[in-house]
Design a protein around this nucleic acid. Structure first.
Length: 410
RNA sequence: CGGGGCGUGGCGCAGCCUGGUAGCGCGCACCGUUCGGGUCGGUGAGGUCCCGAGUUCGAAUCUCGGCGCCCCGACCA
């Protein structure tokens, strides 16, 4: 049911007064998202379609490397967090139930998944495992910002790998590198895989997937054969700082803002030892399980796409993330022959399996074109009196607003 | 958490300084008009002026307290 006359797509001419980032302004203006509080956002129907498209791409690539989808709770007992030493993290929401039991809202799911694996995995025969889910994360961020770019609640695909040794972990890690590379390529985003700081969690190695864009919160250092989070580059002995510039050997590095869309992380055995996730090998000897954790955010993928491809008229979705493949604009008075032609075309496209948003509203052509360009579906089809006269449907490709090859109405 | 800013119909704003019971544009409803780039005209609906207390005959406006939101920074497992 995607007739615009009955679809909740609340477009606005003006951006929210306090919006700064392009994606914040445009996603609200295009009717994709709406704010409920600081860092709390609702995905409206068209926005949710974009989110779901990102989710589906991720799901397909995770399944392709042997990932098993499951679902773990957001509301969790505080105890496992105490055992991993993460209960005192400031960003962790804590609460008590009516009986006074301590609970947390999970900001990530290492504790939950390791808790289960500790119970369920006993033998080397049970390994390796790649487990993942799409689940809400709750983080008490000191400063949410930029629309959907940094929120207190968001959906993340997080996967966790379990191996008998470091070599196995490295294998699982490489599988994720492949999957994440494919995910990013399929989204059509410009991206870099950069070395990242292993941070307070320790760990053996990590990469971040960064999408360059002006609203990005991170900085990446880029050379012809080098890409790293700036924080990492600054501690790289091969990188020299000369004035404001960074040099790798003699090559100057470009510093660019970017959004962190995903990250992959070789955890090691820290969590598994804290929660008793061990297995027995062929000789009956007990070992800790080697873990990796891997996250990617569909919402950030969507926002990054808006940031990277928008123009002065609105969003220009990559095909893979667009809410609809086709935006069909009907021009002409309500019961005119051209409107009847548009109706027929809509039904034809729909029954042919094309995801089409049909603008059948009683509105003028200018308003319809403006909304179509704001929403940014890759292809716009226009049916009006001209179409009946020429026998052709006008095709506009959103990116660059180029005319596409006209289609015969018949 | 440090610094700055802002809360007035759905959205964007004016009014506040200098107190007298709320206005503009867009949007919305209805009638007519128009139909290839946000048409035009008419009529109309819609507001606890963020909340509470105080000052005053009278508070959107002044005072105090609180809450919320945004931006910069710090933070970001």
């Amino acid at each position: 049911m995607t007739r615009l006359s009955s679809y909740l797509l609340p477009t606005e001419k003006q951006p929210p007064a306090d919006a700064e980032a392009v994606s914040h302004k445009l996603m609200v203006r295009a009717g994709l998202i709406r704010q409920m509080g600081a860092g709390m956002w609702t995905w409206l129907p068209a926005g949710w379609r974009v989110h779901q498209r990102a989710v589906q791409i991720i799901r397909e690539e995770m399944n392709a490397i042997g990932g098993q989808e499951m679902l773990m709770p957001v509301l969790q007992p505080a105890d496992v967090w105490r055992r991993t030493g993460r209960l005192d993290i400031d960003a962790l929401f804590k609460l008590t139930d009516r009986k006074g039991s301590e609970l947390v809202l999970a900001m990530t799911h290492e504790e939950a998944v390791t808790f289960h694996v500790a119970q369920l995995v006993r033998s080397y025969r049970d390994l390796p495992l790649i487990l993942y889910h799409f689940q809400v994360k709750e983080r008490d961020e000191p400063r949410p910002r930029a629309g959907v770019l940094r929120t207190r609640e968001f959906i993340m695909k997080d996967s966790y790998t379990f191996d008998r040794d470091q070599a196995g972990l490295e294998e699982r890690y490489e599988l994720h590198v492949g999957a994440y590379d494919r995910i990013m390529r399929r989204t059509g985003l410009r991206f870099y895989r950069v070395q990242s700081d292993v941070g307070m969690m320790g760990g053996l190695g990590a990469h971040e997937y960064m999408a360059p864009c002006p609203a990005g919160e991170d900085q990446v250092a880029l050379g012809s054969d080098y890409a790293a989070n700036l924080e990492v580059a600054e501690h790289d002995p091969d990188v020299r700082k000369v004035g404001d510039a960074y040099l790798l050997g003699s090559e100057p590095l470009t510093i660019a803002p970017a959004i962190e869309v995903g990250n992959i992380f070789m955890l090691g055995t820290r969590s598994s030892e804290a929660l008793g996730a061990r297995y027995l090998d062929e000789h009956g000897q007990e070992w800790p399980i080697w873990m990796g954790s891997y996250g990617i955010g569909p919402a950030r993928m969507a926002a990054a796409a808006v940031e990277q491809f928008a123009d002065e008229h609105g969003i220009c979705w990559p095909k893979s993330l667009a809410p609809f493949a086709v935006h069909l604009v009907a021009i002409g008075a309500e019961s005119s022959p051209e409107r009847a032609a548009a109706e027929t075309l809509y039904e034809t496209l729909r029954s042919g399996g094309v995801e089409v948003l049909y603008d059948d509203r009683e509105a003028g052509p200018g308003e319809k074109f403006a909304d179509a360009e704001l929403l940014g579906c890759p292809v716009r089809l226009t049916v009006g009196r001209r179409s009946l006269e020429s026998g052709e449907i006008e095709v506009q490709l959103r990116r660059g607003r180029r005319a596409g090859p006209a289609l015969s109405l018949s």
